[in-house]
Write a protein that binds this DNA or RNA. Structure first.
Lengths: 355, 355
DNA sequence: ATGAAAGCGCTAACAA
DNA sequence: TTGTTAGCGCTTTCAT
């Protein structure tokens, strides 16, 4: 037998029909113990290691694959602990369902194709978009054209897709109120990138009107909800420590009279960068400037400090996405889901200087 | 048409045969421009978005899937920037080949099944094992049984699988020689986990003999190659900052006369933790204790310090794995590959105190 | 340049 | 409980 053996080979070796042999492996039907054993023995004899998934998939119309479109190049996405933990929660949930995760890079370079070839051609039963795109996202269009159901994490609430998100706007509002109560009147903010162009730098009012991605917009709105009009808005090109430090240099270099007394960053990585950047400027955290973040990450290298932050249930978000996927594959139409967040006060915020 | 249209539907709508319609999409054969256009028009009309990958895969016997077995739970693996960057390089290389990465969790809990169900049943053309297992790895066995070719990253050199690795032993030897030349005589080391049990803590000579995983073993041997017999060996349960700090507390708490003057960590994350832990103990780095790492990561949160480290070409390693995969799928038998590393001296090492 | 026909490996009605 | 039959959607000889 030069070829790999097939179920037909096993069946004939065991002296049964293919369908019976199939039952021996799937268990999806009545079969005598002795018969099954005979089939399994024949399989072992022939070195047959179970039904070929390709045949099974074509027959069942299911690939068992969940395509996960990460928001960007893997390198960038996975430097963000939030994406990683979410993915982890997702895998934990759908693994036992027999589903696997296919990694699909998001649109990477402006020059390249608008969508990854995998989006157009890979087998998948459902797709998950991390950092869900905008309404006219070409990836979304391609998936819709293929008839692949989509679950969007933290994106716009679109028709035809299920969204799983968090109450980040409310969380930031709570955080802003906390700072306000501490006497802070000059609050600056460091945001996640506004859109795919990832411009970076201080943003004026005009640019603030054009925030394409929903996360930075909602979190900025949270500030305003609490009546905190930021005295400076810095757009980070990515959620990385170094961009937080750069933001600190841009926002905190002025004289004490006009310098912000608090900085709200839209992620913990950025907040940590702000802390480090502020210290490089010779400022004490939190005595001279309070710093707060978002996510609730565990950042051991910031020890002994712990960030004041809005804690989001990342792994649970992943698990929720997993459950939504399960429902979608069962033909249901699950509702959008918004998970709660909570404020956690650490060592990086205190009363405003002179307050 | 309640069902999704198939190629047959498109063909009949265009008034051609299925085989011709197939050619219109694949381009693998002669076809008149006008005919192709007619087929594509019919497809657009019907909302047909290209050949169903499941049918194509069964027919061709290829799934276009590369299964990547990460060494552990995703959460842990992906907290390690090395895994992430490697994966990034891999995806960049195989993406243009039309291949996608299926994430497969490694054995996670001792209680659970020995291998992830995806290893047994998922469609894949080739598998990559990060942190390649030991000789009797059940994952390796399962893949062999299924006849799936395996590429192992940084593992034992086994027969039947292709290995891609780096000259870590030589790199550590070079690093050790550097420290020796700086006058260091009492050198301690912090290793990666010895094996799946991830015991953690100070390791005596007996335990050192039982290092199951090849990376910690080779890097430890590198020290010995340079004539540096470590005065203390601390096994970290994972390559995380906090374990490096714990190692520092365990190794550097003694009096100056016996305290190690240098610590070699087997990863940059661990080294960074050692730096932070040493500072918490009131020690200056590098004046009181020199610290070196391995990997060559960019750690902005350690600024203004930069680690002395052995730089490995991580992304290139991923790209190499990608090329090896390509060769394997082409039916070739590529040779094992060992990539070079280089010593990079940063600000965390200097002459031994009193030397 | 196009069409007819076979079959990749499997599962699921249905019949026995 | 087992066998027969059909067909999932596609690609690919081989004829025409």
């Amino acid at each position: 037998m030069s070829q790999r053996p097939t179920l037909a080979d096993v069946a004939s070796a065991a002296g049964v029909s293919v369908s019976t042999a199939s039952l021996a492996f799937s268990g999806a039907g009545p079969i005598a113990d002795a018969t099954r054993q005979r089939v399994l023995d024949a399989a072992a004899e022939l070195g047959y290691s179970g039904p070929n998934p390709l045949g099974r998939q074509l027959r069942s119309g299911r690939s068992g694959i969940v395509g996960v479109v990460v928001g960007d190049a893997l390198r960038r996405s996975f430097r963000d602990p939030v994406s990683v933990q979410l993915l982890d929660g997702l895998v934990d949930t759908i693994g036992p369902l027999g589903l696997g995760v296919l990694l699909i890079p998001g649109p990477t370079s402006p020059g390249g194709p608008a969508v990854d070839p995998l989006v157009e051609a890979a087998a998948m039963d459902v797709a998950v978009m991390l950092w869900g795109g905008t309404l006219d996202d070409p990836t979304l269009e391609a998936l819709a054209r293929r008839g692949i159901p989509v679950v969007v994490v933290e994106g716009h609430e679109l028709s035809g897709v299920v969204t799983v998100g968090i109450d980040d706007r409310g969380g930031v509002a709570e955080l802003a109120a906390h700072l306000r109560d501490l006497g802070h009147r000059r609050v600056a903010t460091v945001t996640l990138p506004f859109g795919p162009e990832r411009q970076g730098g201080l943003a004026d009012l005009a640019r603030r009107e054009q925030i394409a991605w929903s996360i930075p917009r909602r979190r900025l709105e949270g500030l305003l909800d609490a009546g905190v009009e930021p005295v400076g808005v810095y757009e980070a090109p990515a959620s990385l420590v170094e961009h937080g430090s750069a933001a600190a240099r841009a926002l905190l270099s002025g004289p004490p009279e006009t310098r912000p007394t608090a900085v709200v960053a839209q992620s913990d990585m950025l907040a940590a960068g702000v802390v480090l950047g502020a210290r490089e400027l010779g400022l004490r955290v939190p005595e001279d400037v309070s710093v707060a973040g978002f996510d609730g990450l565990d950042l051991p290298w910031l020890a002994p400090d712990t960030l004041t932050t809005v804690v989001q249930p990342i792994a649970e978000k992943g698990a929720t996405v997993g459950r939504v996927i399960q429902a979608v594959l069962a033909g249901e139409h699950p509702a959008d889901d918004v998970l709660p967040v909570s404020l956690r006060v650490g060592t990086t915020t205190t009363a405003a200087p002179g307050a």
